[in-house]
Computed example of a mutant assay.
Amino acid sequence: MTNDPKRQPIRAAVARTAGQPLQFESATLEAPRDNEVLVRMVATGVCHTDMVIRDQQYKTPLPMILGHEGAGVIEQVGRNVTTVAPGDHVVMAYMYCGLCSPCATGHPAHCANMGPLNFGGGRLDGSSSACCHDGGELHDHFFGQSSFATHAIASELNVVKVPKEVPLELLGPLGCGIQTGAGAVLNAMKVHAGASFAAFGTGAVGLAALMAARVAGATKIIAVDVNSTRLQLALELGATHAINSRETDPVAEIRKITGGGADFTLECSGRAAVLRQAIDSVGLLGTCGIVGATPEGTEASFNVNDVMIPGRRIMGIVQGDVVSRTFIPELIELYRQGRFPFDRLVKFYDFDDVNQAMADSESGVTIKPILRFESAAA
């Protein structure tokens, strides 16, 4: 297969064994199908979910090319593709079917086929684009892209055309982590002017949510974390209050700050104990959103009467419940206006340093790593 002129040679970072570092391998991609595109990668973000799959906290088929915050340049399109063309700059987001009830009603992030399309290791029909250099099986289409490679095959559905005057290497995280936090605030929960909002966890998702709360006009914006450096950054990015939950009971403090409980809270840490705090911090008729990814089978508890009687709402949110094709350009425009400075969250790494970038993300050294490829010139 490696001599097939129709296949694109690539270099990919592959997850082969649960919990082990990614391995760099030579592989190939088949040509894009009728509704697909071939993207030359310029940069890709590293997200917590990449580590979740590497460690098999969510079970997926291995070996697999990970990566799902890709940004690049279209090199080839299938014959039925009409919305992008070779040379276009694109961000790749999550994949969805476009045909189920959630997709048809404007909620593609909650697609009925979200699992197999984003975590199944291939297309919905089970096929994959990638092939090992020796012809062996290699799973791809992680979030419809598998961007930890020099090239990726994506669908026309999950590529978003972006302006060429904005640095393309910066934009990949808008396709997952950043849109998840911002979308949860602006789209799913609809935080409004004058509201109170608290984010539990100040990683990329939580900080994006805090910045979005400021855009929405929330007047009490509360950051909760155990990392004092990140709490300071949260204050610089628009938080009005910062709570170190190792030093202070966040539930009591939020109730004190807001006069009874926040209108909105967002659990971004993926920890069941923190989710309980986020629920208990909500005021009358308030909403707690959940975006933190937990290991499969994780359960959490709450006092039923303390949810029912005050009319609290608990909302599961995937990808901010956004339509990426319209929401990502909105975030880019907010960034250009200086109202959404997500560039302050990022640190760039060479693609070869993917395992170090993952380690730095897990240790808290880096909020949002972005891998740059040698072919980054557009």
Rank of each mutant, 00 (worst) to 15 (best):
C288L: 03
D280W: 00
G297Y: 10
G283A: 09
T258A: 00
T294R: 10
G289K: 06
A262D: 04
K256G: 05
E296H: 13
T287H: 13
G297H: 10
E299W: 02
D263E: 12
G297F: 01
R271F: 14
A262T: 07
G289I: 05
I257A: 05
D306F: 09
G289S: 08
G259H: 00
D280V: 07
G297N: 13
E299A: 14
G259P: 13
A300P: 12
G270S: 09
F302E: 06
A262G: 14
L284A: 05
F264H: 14
S269V: 13
S301L: 00
A293D: 06
S281E: 02
G286F: 01
P295L: 08
L284W: 03
R271A: 15
T287D: 12
C288R: 01
A278V: 01
G261P: 13
T294D: 13
C288K: 11
T258I: 08
D280S: 05
G289W: 05
I290Q: 13
R255D: 00
C288F: 02
S301H: 07
G289M: 02
E296D: 14
S269K: 03
G292E: 10
E296S: 15
S269C: 15
V274N: 06
L275P: 15
P295Q: 02
G260Q: 12
T298W: 06
R255N: 08
A300S: 14
T287P: 09
V274Q: 04
T298Q: 14
T294H: 07
F264V: 07
Q277K: 11
G286D: 06
L284R: 07
T294I: 01
A293C: 05
E299V: 09
G292I: 05
E267S: 06
S281F: 00
T298V: 03
N305Q: 00
S301W: 00
I290S: 04
C268V: 12
D263Y: 04
L266C: 11
I257R: 03
L266V: 06
V274W: 04
A262N: 10
I290M: 07
L266M: 05
G283F: 10
N305H: 02
